[in-house]
């Protein structure tokens, strides 16, 4: 059971890490438009300008 002494602190570190990543993602507006990018990937931009 000694592994618990490692895993519990590790999980704590992970929790705060994930929290920080999520905070960053929201701040950067990653969740602002959930629908647009899904459609955007279907459009082939390279045809642009070729007519």
């Amino acid at each position: 059971m000694e592994i618990v002494y490692l895993l519990v602190p590790l999980s704590l570190v992970l929790v705060f890490l994930i929290g920080a990543v999520f905070f960053w993602a929201v701040r950067r507006g990653q969740y602002d438009d959930l629908e647009g990018p899904a459609h955007r990937i279907l459009m082939d931009d390279d045809r642009t300008g070729s007519g």
Partner: peptide, 27 residues
């Protein structure tokens, strides 16, 4: 629809002098 967003974005990005376009489909 989403194609409209693409259309406007492409048209503006191809314009000389436009540095960046960011369209939010939801709003």
């Amino acid at each position: 629809c989403a194609a409209c967003v693409w259309l406007i974005e492409q048209r503006l990005q191809n314009m000389p002098g436009v540095l960046g376009v960011d369209i939010n489909y939801a709003t």
